[in-house]
Design a protein around this nucleic acid. Structure first.
Lengths: 105, 105
DNA sequence: CAGTATCCCGTGAGATACTG
DNA sequence: CAGTATCTCACGGGATACTG
C-alpha cells in the first residue's frame, strides 16, 4: 500500500510533479500506457529491465495519484488493464516536452 | 567523479531527460540557480533538507551533462559560482511545464 | 567556504515462493 | 495472469572529520 511522501514544507508544484512522475519507471510506464499497452504483462514485456514487483509498485503509486485507472476483470485467468486518467493525459504533454528535449542535439 | 548510467538499449529522449534532471535534488537546484542563486552555500541554505555532500554530487552530475557551468574563483575564502548553460536554460522550459502541472487543481 | 574521504546504517529492490 | 509476502543484501546517503 502506498502512502504519501510529499514533504509538507516543500509543496511547490515542481516537487509535486517530481513526486508523481519521478519514480524510477513511472515515465516509462506512462509512455507505454499512452502508446496503447494496457496489461501488466505487456508493460513488463516492454520494460524487461524492471521487475514485475517494481512495476506493480510504481503502477499502484500512479493509481494512488489518479494518474492511471485500473480495471480488474473478474475472469480467469485474471485480466487487468490500466488506462490514463484525464490527469494522466495532461501530464503526457510534459513527458512529451521532456522527450523532445532529451532528443535534441 | 560521475560516470554515465544511461542504459545503452534505452536511449530514447525521455530516459535521457530523466537521467539528466531526474536526480533527487536536480530540479530544485536548477530552479534555484535559475532564480539567481549561484554559490553552493546559498543553494544549500535554500535546500536545507539535502546535505551539502548530496548537493555537491548532484551539481557535479549537472555539470557533467553540461546543464550547469562551474566557475572557481582563486581567492580565499574559496568562492564558487554555478550558472545555467544554454542547455540548462532550455530545460527550464520543461521544468516550468512540470511546475505548472503540479500546481493545477 | 568548497570539496573529499571514511565509516556506517536504513531501505530499495532482486529472487523466490505462494495465493486467487 | 496478477499480486503479495519474506528473506536478503548492496548501496544510497547521513554524520563526521579533514584538506586547500
Amino acid at each position: 500500500m502506498y502512502e504519501k511522501k510529499i514533504a509538507k514544507d516543500l509543496t511547490c508544484g515542481l516537487n509535486i510533479a517530481i513526486e508523481v512522475i519521478g519514480g524510477k519507471w513511472k515515465a516509462n510506464l506512462l509512455a507505454n500506457i499512452s502508446k496503447g499497452l494496457k496489461r501488466p504483462s505487456e508493460l513488463h514485456r516492454s520494460i524487461p529491465r524492471a521487475s514485475a514487483r517494481m512495476l506493480n509498485q510504481q503502477l499502484s503509486e500512479l493509481e494512488f495519484h489518479s494518474i492511471v485507472e485500473k480495471t480488474i476483470f473478474n475472469i480467469l485467468p485474471t485480466k487487468v488493464e490500466y488506462a490514463l486518467t484525464p490527469g494522466g493525459e495532461s501530464i503526457m504533454e510534459v513527458l512529451r516536452a521532456m522527450k523532445s528535449w532529451g532528443e535534441r542535439l
